[in-house]
């Protein structure tokens, strides 16, 4: 369940951040819209990267638990 909570929290934060950004008006020096909106692509790639890294961190935690279990001979469980 923790898995969903962090994900949902992440989506809400992103939603909120996007809500605060100016929508259509082009302002000079607008970081996301300058040079053909290339930074939107950078943003998309970063989101993918962090999503995959989050998955790997979660997997690593599971493996750490399993290692503990092997080393401590089930003592860790309680």
């Amino acid at each position: 369940m923790k898995f969903f909570k962090t994900r949902i929290f992440f989506i809400i934060v992103l939603f909120g951040a996007l809500y605060l950004c100016p929508a259509n008006a082009y302002a000079a020096g607008d970081f996301m819209r300058e040079t053909g909106k290339i930074n939107v692509v950078v943003g998309v790639i970063l989101l993918l990267f962090f999503g995959i890294v989050a998955y790997l961190i979660r997997l690593e935690r599971k493996l750490t638990k399993l290692e503990h279990q092997i080393n401590d001979d089930h003592e860790w469980k309680n």
């Binding site: 994900r7 989506i11 996007l18 929508a23 996301m32 939107v40 998309v44 989101l47 993918l48 999503g51």
Partner: peptide, 13 residues
């Protein structure tokens, strides 16, 4: 979820 989130970012702009 990654598709949805990246889609939202793209849609915003």
């Amino acid at each position: 979820l990654l598709g949805l989130v990246t889609g939202m970012l793209w849609a915003h702009y």
